[in-house]
């Protein structure tokens, strides 16, 4: 566990989380959410939980993004609020 790496990963993680909520374009929001999942998978593996990291990388970074994109094709791309 490298303290500096974990610190900066955590900062970028929080920035990604805020960005995913604030961005207006929903396609960009899905992309940012996928990046968030990938970063938190890196953090899980740095914290010594490779099993959880593998689940997060496979499910959060790959499948959830694809399912959100598939549902995005049925609706308007821009967020109202």
């Amino acid at each position: 566990m490298i303290l500096e790496l974990d610190f900066w990963l955590m900062i970028v993680l929080i920035m990604f989380a805020i960005l995913a909520l604030e961005v207006k374009d929903l396609l960009a929001a899905v992309g940012v959410l996928t990046g968030y999942s990938f970063l938190i998978a890196l953090l899980f593996s740095a914290l010594g939980a490779p099993d959880v990291a593998l689940t997060e990388a496979a499910l959060g970074a790959a499948l959830t993004g694809v399912l959100l994109l598939a549902s995005l094709t049925f609706m308007n791309r821009n967020s109202k609020d």
Binding site: A53, L54, T55, A58, L63
Partner: peptide, 12 residues
């Protein structure tokens, strides 16, 4: 690490 669920997600 890993198991049925993670591998199944990758196959899907």
């Amino acid at each position: 690490p890993g198991g049925g669920f993670q591998g199944g997600v990758m196959l899907a």
